[in-house]
Design a protein around this nucleic acid. Sequence first.
DNA 1: AATCCATGTGTACAAGTGTTCACTAATGTG
DNA 2: CACATTAGTGAACACTTGTACACATGGATT
Lengths: 208, 208
Amino acid sequence: MAEKQRRKPGETREKLMTAALTLVGKGRHFASLGIREVTRQAGVVPTSFYRHFRNMDDLGLQLVDELGLVLRRMMREARANVLQADKLIEESVAIFISHAQANRSFFLFMAQGLAGESRAVQEGIRSEMRFFASELANDLRRLRLVDHLTDQDLDMTSDLVVRSVAFSLTDLLGVSADDDYQIEQIRKRTTRFLQLIFVGAAHWKSAG
Amino acid sequence: MAEKQRRKPGETREKLMTAALTLVGKGRHFASLGIREVTRQAGVVPTSFYRHFRNMDDLGLQLVDELGLVLRRMMREARANVLQADKLIEESVAIFISHAQANRSFFLFMAQGLAGESRAVQEGIRSEMRFFASELANDLRRLRLVDHLTDQDLDMTSDLVVRSVAFSLTDLLGVSADDDYQIEQIRKRTTRFLQLIFVGAAHWKSAG
DNA sequence: AATCCATGTGTACAAGTGTTCACTAATGTG
DNA sequence: CACATTAGTGAACACTTGTACACATGGATT
């Protein structure tokens, strides 16, 4: 019989989170996942679940935390790789798309969670997006590309940018991961969205 | 015992769809609803479900069709009520928000379906949004406010507008329906988003 | 008036669900 | 080394689930 096999601490915990993400990656919605289902996918007995999470919402919240890490990695890479200001938008979008592909399940979870069942998860994801937007605003301020904007207007612009990119995410996750043509279309369209927004920001007069 | 009580044709069908929406309105996610749960909410025996729908996805698809009607009503009202071009954005946003409040469950369903479990529902909602965007493009063309834009750029602008509004929807549905302050904030922010986009469109040069 | 069919009802069943409990082995701490 | 804690296991529970079946009934069609 299968004996207890204790391995690295937190390994089962990680297996459970990965299992949930895997199921989401297979097309399931997080809200419809059950404890037994997740433990089965993880190759663990159902009772083990309670050693690490109180319920599925709890697991979702911890996934949001990990999502935060993914987003921070993405920001860091963008900051490191986007050198020429004139290619800023194109390159940022490209980096975003490649990260979204590499962490497909994570971003699926994020897109689902925005209108998900758990209010806490919803709020967590929203909060991550706000953080992302505020970091973007800082970067833009630092680059001094939009000096004429008030802080408030800059925040609004960043917010709109982040939302637009997030929405493109749902486009991206809707097409199969190897449909290069469609992905290229999404990349182009997202780029143009952002360009349009920045043209607007360049000519924006506050309190208009 | 409760005898069969045949009423208007399609009444049970409607009761089932309303029941699903009601549950969504109560905070449940559509993907996590079950047949028994919906029939229970509708006050109908589980087997009745199969007289009208093959499964929950099927019910979802029919909800998307009804959602289309709601959107069309909203468009019609916007066209009838937005008279002065200079208040176009403000008034459209106001109409949108009031419709979103009046049909809260419908729009919750829409927000959920965008990243939902059923690919067909997802595609249906996306298709409704495309239609909405193309209608918006037509209206803008008719009003001759953005004459310098190519058809393609006009489509892109409309698309971005619809997406931004749709995202605001998730903000709106996240706050309680009688939190006037928050709703007013969302209204203002959405209005500014659209103004920013239109400033961008006004200064947009194609093939930039 | 006879018939058909769409739509309703009740019963049944096998499978899956969340959660509790008592038990056990590995690990970190004294 | 002894011991408390953590993290794994399997069996059991009371329910809920989707779906199939046989049957009833009202309205429409013939």
